[in-house]
Simulated assay, not measured.
Amino acid sequence: MDDQPTPDPTMTRIIEAVQLGQAGDPTRARHRLTALWDEIGATGDALHRCTLAHHLADLQDTPENELVWDERALAAVSDLTDERARQHHHALQVRNFLPSLHLNLADVHRRLRDTARARAHLHTARSLAEHLPTDQYGDLVRVGVQHVEQALAAGSTRRLDSHPAAAG
Protein backbone atom coordinates (compact mmCIF):
# COMPACT_ATOMS: atom_id res chain seq x y z
CA MET A 1 0.00 0.00 0.00
CA ASP A 2 1.29 3.45 -0.92
CA ASP A 3 1.65 5.86 2.04
CA GLN A 4 2.11 8.86 -0.23
CA PRO A 5 -0.72 11.39 -0.01
CA THR A 6 -2.93 12.02 -2.97
CA PRO A 7 -2.09 15.42 -4.50
CA ASP A 8 -4.70 17.92 -3.35
CA PRO A 9 -4.66 21.22 -5.26
CA THR A 10 -7.02 22.88 -2.77
CA MET A 11 -4.78 22.04 0.19
CA THR A 12 -1.83 23.36 -1.81
CA ARG A 13 -3.67 26.65 -2.34
CA ILE A 14 -4.59 26.85 1.36
CA ILE A 15 -0.98 26.23 2.41
CA GLU A 16 0.30 28.83 -0.07
CA ALA A 17 -2.13 31.42 1.31
CA VAL A 18 -1.17 30.61 4.91
CA GLN A 19 2.50 31.04 3.97
CA LEU A 20 1.69 34.49 2.59
CA GLY A 21 0.36 35.49 5.99
CA GLN A 22 3.37 34.03 7.76
CA ALA A 23 5.63 35.95 5.38
CA GLY A 24 4.09 39.26 6.44
CA ASP A 25 1.19 39.72 4.02
CA PRO A 26 -1.86 38.91 6.14
CA THR A 27 -4.26 40.99 4.05
CA ARG A 28 -3.48 39.11 0.85
CA ALA A 29 -3.56 35.81 2.73
CA ARG A 30 -6.97 36.67 4.20
CA HIS A 31 -8.35 37.59 0.76
CA ARG A 32 -7.07 34.37 -0.80
CA LEU A 33 -8.43 32.19 1.97
CA THR A 34 -11.79 33.96 1.92
CA ALA A 35 -12.03 33.42 -1.84
CA LEU A 36 -11.17 29.75 -1.34
CA TRP A 37 -13.86 29.46 1.33
CA ASP A 38 -16.35 30.84 -1.17
CA GLU A 39 -15.27 28.16 -3.66
CA ILE A 40 -15.34 25.30 -1.13
CA GLY A 41 -18.60 26.33 0.49
CA ALA A 42 -19.96 25.66 3.96
CA THR A 43 -20.62 22.01 3.10
CA GLY A 44 -17.48 21.28 1.06
CA ASP A 45 -14.65 18.93 1.93
CA ALA A 46 -14.28 18.84 5.73
CA LEU A 47 -10.46 18.82 5.68
CA HIS A 48 -10.43 21.89 3.47
CA ARG A 49 -13.01 23.70 5.59
CA CYS A 50 -11.35 22.87 8.90
CA THR A 51 -7.83 23.77 7.76
CA LEU A 52 -8.89 26.95 6.00
CA ALA A 53 -11.14 28.23 8.81
CA HIS A 54 -8.50 27.40 11.44
CA HIS A 55 -5.89 29.50 9.65
CA LEU A 56 -8.26 32.22 8.48
CA ALA A 57 -9.28 32.85 12.10
CA ASP A 58 -5.71 33.91 12.87
CA LEU A 59 -5.82 36.52 10.11
CA GLN A 60 -8.86 38.40 11.38
CA ASP A 61 -8.68 41.99 12.61
CA THR A 62 -11.22 41.57 15.41
CA PRO A 63 -11.83 38.83 17.96
CA GLU A 64 -15.50 38.77 16.92
CA ASN A 65 -14.53 37.81 13.36
CA GLU A 66 -11.90 35.42 14.65
CA LEU A 67 -14.55 33.66 16.75
CA VAL A 68 -16.70 33.08 13.64
CA TRP A 69 -13.83 31.30 11.88
CA ASP A 70 -12.74 29.36 14.96
CA GLU A 71 -16.29 28.07 15.35
CA ARG A 72 -16.38 27.10 11.66
CA ALA A 73 -13.15 25.14 12.08
CA LEU A 74 -14.55 23.24 15.07
CA ALA A 75 -17.81 22.54 13.22
CA ALA A 76 -15.92 21.25 10.19
CA VAL A 77 -13.78 18.86 12.22
CA SER A 78 -16.93 17.01 13.30
CA ASP A 79 -17.42 16.07 9.63
CA LEU A 80 -13.79 15.00 9.19
CA THR A 81 -12.69 11.37 9.28
CA ASP A 82 -9.26 9.92 9.93
CA GLU A 83 -9.44 8.31 6.50
CA ARG A 84 -9.91 11.70 4.82
CA ALA A 85 -7.16 13.30 6.92
CA ARG A 86 -4.76 10.46 6.01
CA GLN A 87 -5.37 11.14 2.33
CA HIS A 88 -3.52 14.40 2.94
CA HIS A 89 -0.86 12.95 5.26
CA HIS A 90 -0.58 9.33 6.39
CA ALA A 91 -0.07 10.22 10.08
CA LEU A 92 -2.95 12.66 10.56
CA GLN A 93 -5.66 11.84 13.09
CA VAL A 94 -8.73 13.96 13.69
CA ARG A 95 -8.35 13.76 17.47
CA ASN A 96 -5.03 15.61 17.15
CA PHE A 97 -6.78 18.61 15.57
CA LEU A 98 -9.10 19.10 18.55
CA PRO A 99 -6.71 20.48 21.22
CA SER A 100 -5.60 23.34 18.96
CA LEU A 101 -9.15 24.14 17.87
CA HIS A 102 -10.34 24.32 21.49
CA LEU A 103 -7.25 26.29 22.48
CA ASN A 104 -8.05 28.92 19.83
CA LEU A 105 -11.63 29.13 21.05
CA ALA A 106 -10.45 29.49 24.65
CA ASP A 107 -8.16 32.32 23.65
CA VAL A 108 -10.69 34.24 21.60
CA HIS A 109 -13.37 33.89 24.30
CA ARG A 110 -10.80 35.18 26.81
CA ARG A 111 -10.20 38.23 24.63
CA LEU A 112 -13.96 38.75 24.34
CA ARG A 113 -14.23 38.65 28.16
CA ASP A 114 -16.35 35.47 28.12
CA THR A 115 -14.39 33.76 30.86
CA ALA A 116 -16.86 30.89 31.36
CA ARG A 117 -16.55 29.76 27.74
CA ALA A 118 -12.82 30.46 27.75
CA ARG A 119 -12.36 28.21 30.78
CA ALA A 120 -14.55 25.45 29.30
CA HIS A 121 -12.60 25.38 26.02
CA LEU A 122 -9.29 25.65 27.89
CA HIS A 123 -10.24 22.65 30.04
CA THR A 124 -11.09 20.66 26.91
CA ALA A 125 -7.88 21.74 25.15
CA ARG A 126 -5.78 20.81 28.18
CA SER A 127 -7.32 17.35 28.56
CA LEU A 128 -7.06 16.60 24.83
CA ALA A 129 -3.48 17.90 24.63
CA GLU A 130 -2.40 15.24 27.12
CA HIS A 131 -2.85 12.70 24.32
CA LEU A 132 -0.74 14.57 21.78
CA PRO A 133 2.68 13.12 21.03
CA THR A 134 5.77 14.74 22.48
CA ASP A 135 6.83 16.54 19.33
CA GLN A 136 6.97 20.10 18.03
CA TYR A 137 3.21 20.30 17.43
CA GLY A 138 2.24 18.72 20.76
CA ASP A 139 4.66 20.95 22.65
CA LEU A 140 3.36 24.04 20.83
CA VAL A 141 -0.22 23.26 21.84
CA ARG A 142 0.70 22.50 25.45
CA VAL A 143 2.67 25.75 25.75
CA GLY A 144 -0.28 27.58 24.18
CA VAL A 145 -2.57 26.13 26.84
CA GLN A 146 -0.22 27.46 29.54
CA HIS A 147 -0.10 30.93 27.95
CA VAL A 148 -3.88 31.21 27.66
CA GLU A 149 -4.30 29.87 31.19
CA GLN A 150 -1.89 32.50 32.55
CA ALA A 151 -3.56 35.30 30.59
CA LEU A 152 -6.99 34.19 31.78
CA ALA A 153 -5.80 34.06 35.40
CA ALA A 154 -4.34 37.57 35.02
CA GLY A 155 -7.57 38.91 33.52
CA SER A 156 -5.78 39.91 30.32
CA THR A 157 -7.81 40.46 27.17
CA ARG A 158 -4.94 41.46 24.90
CA ARG A 159 -3.71 39.32 22.02
CA LEU A 160 -0.86 37.10 23.21
CA ASP A 161 2.59 37.43 21.71
CA SER A 162 2.41 33.70 20.96
CA HIS A 163 -0.71 34.21 18.79
CA PRO A 164 0.13 33.47 15.14
CA ALA A 165 -1.06 36.91 14.04
CA ALA A 166 1.22 38.64 16.53
CA ALA A 167 4.27 37.61 14.49
CA GLY A 168 2.89 39.08 11.26
Score class of each variant (00 low, 15 high):
Glu16Ile: 06
Glu16Asn: 14
Ala17Trp: 05
Val18Asp: 08
Val18Ile: 15
Gly21Val: 13
Gln22His: 08
Gly24Leu: 03
Asp25Gly: 08
Asp25Met: 11
Ala29Asn: 07
Arg30Cys: 10
His31Arg: 14
His31Ala: 13
Arg32Glu: 11
Thr34His: 01
Thr34Phe: 01
Trp37Met: 08
Trp37Asn: 06
Asp38Ile: 03
Glu39Asp: 10
Gly41Ser: 09
Ala42Gly: 03
Thr43Met: 14
Gly44Trp: 15
Gly44Leu: 15
Ala46Thr: 14
Leu47Ile: 11
Leu47Gln: 07
His48Cys: 14
Arg49Ala: 11
Cys50Glu: 12
Thr51Gly: 14
Leu52Asn: 14
Ala53Lys: 14
His55Tyr: 11
Leu56Lys: 14
Leu56Tyr: 13
Ala57His: 15
Ala57Ile: 13
Leu59Cys: 06
Gln60Arg: 03
Pro63Met: 12
Pro63Glu: 12
Glu64Asn: 00
Leu67Asp: 01
Val68Ala: 05
Trp69Tyr: 06
Asp70Tyr: 04
Glu71Lys: 10
Glu71His: 08
Val77Lys: 05
Val77Thr: 10
Val77Pro: 01
Asp79Met: 10
Thr81Ala: 10
Glu83Asn: 06
Glu83Phe: 03
Arg84Met: 06
Arg84Asn: 08
Ala85Met: 02
Gln87His: 06
Gln87Gly: 06
Gln87Ser: 06
His89Gln: 09
Leu92Ile: 05
Leu103Gly: 01
Asn104Tyr: 00
Asn104Met: 01
Leu105Phe: 02
Asp107Met: 06
Asp107Lys: 07
Arg111Thr: 05
Ala116Ile: 01
Arg117Met: 09
Arg117Phe: 04
Ala118Glu: 09
Ala120Ser: 10
His123Glu: 12
Leu128Ile: 03
Ala129Glu: 02
Glu130Met: 09
Glu130Cys: 07
